[in-house]
């Protein structure tokens, strides 16, 4: 029971953490700007369509107007192809999910607060609790702006079902693991994508926590994994160029919009499993050690 109360405390700390609130505010603002840009594109296209496409006396289009080229599903933050804000969002994600709470263990270890808690619930419970709270902070940091974006855009842009004939406007190509579901159940795809992105960011947020066991420098704990990820992505891309069309970048897998490479679900699952297993094993191992606090 103490463990669950401790988790409740941690959730309270996350939601009242200044860095979490600031990052959330920045991301929400980005969602709003991106949403307004998407709406502008949609409304310009709509105005052009209404002006250019001929209609009969009853106002029915005489030619197919292709209004669905701009729909909710390619206008929200997670579904917009080739736009700067989603690009910033996804490529800085490994940095901003780590900033709010991933290094709280390091902070508590340095200040000595860890002693106050560990003597009440035990080491393993503390470390596991921190793992869970790091995961939650990463998950919430990313999912809330995405949900907000989906909700915000749904108030502005109609939710036309994407049409395969205009797939260039969605950039969800045939090599994409989301393709089938995207054209048949686009809303489900959006929620599934939010879940996957949330899972990735939650797991990623545990990586700086893990690194914090090996360093006392908060900047190294928070940003070194991000840099390492970038270098790994570059190396993997290099390894397979001209040899294999399989996508290896985990960031490209969590984005609905396509890379030009082929998605392989097992590559994605493998990478996520590594992201789950390695920090978790390190955390469990730390629970057994006799540490000097």
């Amino acid at each position: 029971m103490s463990f669950f109360r401790y988790l409740k405390n941690e959730l309270f700390c996350i939601l009242h953490n200044r860095r979490f609130l600031v990052i959330l505010l920045i991301l929400l603002l980005l969602s709003v700007f991106d949403g307004l840009d998407a709406y502008r594109t949609y409304s310009d296209t709509l105005a052009e369509t209404l002006a250019c496409y001929p209609k009969n006396e009853e106002g029915v289009f005489l030619e197919y107007p292709y209004l669905q080229i701009y729909t909710l599903y390619n206008s929200w933050l997670g579904g917009r192809p080739n736009k700067v804000i989603p690009l910033i969002y996804f490529y800085t994600m490994p940095a901003f999910v780590a900033i709010p709470y991933s290094w709280s263990h390091l902070q508590e270890r340095k200040t000595g607060y860890i002693r106050n808690v560990v003597t009440k619930i035990g080491k393993r419970a503390y470390f596991l609790g921190k793992y869970i709270s790091a995961f939650c902070s990463g998950f919430l940091t990313v999912v809330l702006p995405l949900l907000f974006s989906l909700g915000f855009i749904s108030c502005l842009v109609p939710a036309y079902r994407p049409n395969v004939t205009t797939d260039l406007y969605y950039q969800v190509g045939q090599n994409n693991m989301y393709t089938d579901l995207y054209f048949s159940h686009p809303l489900l795809t959006a929620f599934l994508n939010i879940g996957i992105v949330g899972l990735f960011s939650g797991l990623w947020a545990t990586v700086p926590y893990t690194v914090s066991f090996f360093t006392n420098n908060r900047f190294v704990a928070v940003f070194a994994p991000y840099l390492e990820l970038l270098f790994l992505l570059a190396s993997a891309e290099r390894a397979l160029v001209f040899r294999s069309p399989i996508e290896t970048s985990i960031i490209e897998y969590i984005m609905v919009t396509a890379s030009s490479m082929v998605h392989n679900i097992w590559v994605f699952v493998g990478e996520m499993l590594i992201l789950l297993a390695v920090p978790f094993i390190v955390v469990l191992g730390q629970g057994r050690r006799s540490n000097v606090f």
Binding site: T41, L168, Y169, G173, L230
Partner: peptide, 19 residues
């Protein structure tokens, strides 16, 4: 808009700059 020319992120360059 609507043209299938995606952006290939220069991850190596980004990693170098951020390093």
């Amino acid at each position: 808009e609507g043209i299938d020319v995606g952006l290939t992120m220069p991850v190596m360059w980004l990693g170098f700059m951020l390093w």
